[in-house]
Design a protein around this nucleic acid. Structure first.
Lengths: 338, 338
DNA sequence: GTGAAAGCGCTAACAT
DNA sequence: ATGTTAGCGCTTTCAC
């Protein structure tokens, strides 16, 4: 293995100089810097991560706890991971994976000084991990919004605002009855914070706009979507607009509407709340409110890095605001003249 | 931070004794072992991963390179990851993530001695990573089967045998025309080894069984599946049986058949090649050949651990054999008496 | 602007 | 069965 000493010898300088030349933690003459860089390149030197961690108490590694739960959409999850890994690399950090169900994972990564900071995905309203994470030496960033963050930083999409935006948009078009095709019942039963916030926003805006709101929790299957659509269309005031917050069910909902002979947007307007990639991979264009999963992941990393720079700082919660992208799947309801 | 010395003091033994008591690398008296364990528990001692890596040249970490490519099914991918992470933990290892598109990832993880071994997912027929991996100090396991493994170990599902099994099963039932609903064209264009092997097995067994074989490469969309089903049913010899190797399109194929009024299995038999979880989450039972992604991931870890134990050993390739699970979606063709 | 040297916390000979 | 000790490769005072 080629060590820092080999590089130093080759460059004709002291090991510490090589270290400083590489880290930039003190000024180096241009001449020396070049010699070092050439030696590094010629020898193919790579600092030993363990030695570095031991000496500097920094690992250049972030811990990421990912869920393996029912009802969590894998596509969305992968977007989070993509955002995290990509941004972490830009900060010269790697990502160590732990799964939700591995109970001692948090303590192992942090206690063993394997990571500089921790990112917890899919944090629920009352998540037992929050209390444990708050007790750790390393900073922890939560993706999600627990009832009590206990001083930890949080990032999430503003689901409440997203639902309100969707309802307002539809109500402004003239719709007086709006349906919500929500996540599977299991997701709500877990008290997943995001589902509850979305529901809250939906109900609130429905009331404010003075329209009727109907909610169907929907499994991500053809049968489930069909049942949801049927239930909604069979209601006393059948909705003329649908908000879909269930990426897996979205294609089935579109399908079910077509089977019902309901044209989009002539008979029924449609707004999805999902990552742009999901909306754009549908067989027909669907207006959507972007769930910016990749961005949220990137922001989580940035917050972690901020905390590593400056120890102080109060707990911050960042909720990313919703943006509606109109792709023509919404219009005024059929029986209202424009 | 509580160190091994603190533990040693508390237990009244030497630091090395603590090390040995914890690793079990030499025999320890019952009495000493207990004292050490108690001290560890009382102090909440966690070995410093970096220090350990530096002293032992072992990191207890596996590197995992995951694809972020088009056409790779995320559900299947997550199953691989799940299998890998779970089995790795059973060997007391953690998993460090790199993405395919991060070019220097391999060299950074291995050169920096961040990992003991490497697992590369989604290896293609002519994958440039293979040559680079073969040159590394750490053992590398490939998930997939390149044309030339260059001395590296490989694990994969035997797609060739799976296709043959599917065709044979259907031919034995009396079908004389069999359709293959394959992956999206993009997957084949990349020379993804698994898609080619499946196609090869399909064509070979079709010939051997003396039946007609039709192939449709299919995008994972409703429209794509519909088009594929229509193309097949409009052929001069419309297939009475379908093999579907495209988890994302599977539900749409089932849907399209229903729209065509084709009963399953009365009019058309169906065999899917996909993870059991995918087959079982369909709206109706589908006979399938299990794509054991979790197991493959676990096997990859085991092979990596084997290589770490004993340096020698020739390059091994393990292809997991197919098993057909009949869930009643196959039957003799309609116009053949039993 | 550069060097010398003292650890960081652990493992693994080498002793006994 | 246990203790002593010499590093592992790096960062970071401290000194010049």
């Amino acid at each position: 293995m080629v060590t820092i000493e080999d590089v130093a010898r080759r460059a004709g300088v002291a090991p510490s100089t090589v270290s400083y030349a590489l880290s930039g933690k003190r000024s180096i003459s241009e001449r020396t810097r070049e010699r070092v860089e050439r030696a590094v390149a010629e020898l193919g030197y790579r600092p030993h991560a363990g030695a570095r961690a031991l000496a500097s108490a920094r690992t250049s590694t972030l811990g990421l706890m990912i869920p393996l739960r029912q009802g969590v959409d894998v596509n969305v999850m992968m977007q989070f991971v993509l955002g995290i890994v990509t941004r972490a690399r830009e900060f010269d950090h790697d990502v160590l994976l732990v799964t939700q169900d591995e109970d001692a994972g948090l303590e192992r990564l942090t206690g063993g000084r394997m990571v500089d900071a921790l990112i917890l995905m899919d944090v629920e309203a009352a998540d037992p991990r929050v209390g444990r994470a708050a007790r750790l030496a390393q900073p922890t960033i939560l993706i999600g919004l627990p009832d009590d963050p206990q001083g930890l930083h949080c990032v999430d999409f503003d689901f409440d605002a997203a639902a309100r935006l969707a309802v307002r948009h539809l109500a402004d078009l003239g719709h007086t009855s709006i349906g919500l095709v929500g996540p599977p019942p299991a997701v709500l039963e877990r008290h997943t914070s995001f589902a509850e916030r979305l529901l809250h926003g939906f109900r609130e805006q429905v009331e404010r706009s003075g329209v009727t709101g109907l909610v169907e929790l929907t499994p991500p299957t053809h049968a489930g979507a069909l049942a949801a659509v049927e239930a909604l269309r069979g209601a006393s005031e059948p909705p003329t607009a649908l908000v879909v917050h269930n990426e897996a069910a979205l294609p089935w909902v579109v399908d079910a509407l077509q089977m019902h002979g309901a044209g989009i947007p002539t008979d029924v307007s449609l707004v999805a709340i999902c990552p742009a990639a999901v909306a754009q991979s549908q067989s027909r264009p669907v207006s959507f409110i972007d769930l910016p999963a990749t961005t949220i992941g990137a922001v989580a990393v940035e917050m972690a890095m901020d905390r590593l720079e400056e120890q102080g700082g109060a707990a911050e919660t960042r909720l990313l605001g919703p943006v509606l992208v109109d792709q023509g799947s919404t219009a005024p309801p059929p029986h209202v003249s424009p």
